Computed example of a mutant assay.
Amino acid sequence: MGDVVPFQRPAKKRPKQGLCQHGYHKWTVVKDTEFDSKQGKLVTRYQCQRCGKQKVEAR
């Protein structure tokens, strides 16, 4: 008679950036304050903690 192999359920695969893929980023302010010469305004840079995507907002 052969060896008995224990049954294991496959692990659920989750994407690393599941929320970011659907537009739910976790934005944090990058501490560098920059001046945009084209717009003539101060701009604030944001970076997502999960995926690293950046966005810029002018004030």
Rank of each mutant, 00 (worst) to 15 (best):
V56L: 07
G23M: 04
V4W: 09
Q8D: 10
L19W: 05
P10G: 09
R45K: 12
R50A: 07
K12I: 11
R14E: 00
G23V: 05
Q21I: 04
T28K: 13
D3F: 10
K16A: 10
R50N: 15
P10V: 06
K38Y: 08
Q39W: 10
Q17R: 10
V30F: 02
Q47G: 03
H22F: 10
C20H: 02
F7S: 04
H25Q: 14
Y24T: 06
K12E: 10
V4C: 12
A11E: 13
T33I: 11
L42P: 03
P15A: 09
Y46G: 00
Q17V: 02
G18K: 07
Q49W: 05
Q47R: 13
R50G: 03
M1F: 12
Y24D: 07
P10D: 06
T28V: 06
R14Y: 08
Q8L: 14
W27D: 00
P10Y: 04
T44L: 01
V4M: 09
G40Y: 03
E34Y: 07
K31A: 06
D3E: 11
E34P: 06
M1I: 13
K53D: 08
R9A: 08
G2I: 03
G2A: 13
D3S: 09
L42D: 10
S37F: 14
E57Y: 11
Q54I: 12
G2Q: 12
V29R: 06
L42N: 13
R59Y: 07
F7Y: 15
D3G: 08
T44C: 01
G52E: 02
V5A: 02
L19A: 04
V56N: 08
F7Q: 10
Q17H: 15
R59K: 13
G52S: 05
A11V: 14
P15W: 02
C48D: 03
V30N: 01
W27Q: 01
P10M: 01
D36I: 03
C48F: 01
F7K: 09
G23R: 06
P10H: 05
Q39H: 09
S37K: 15
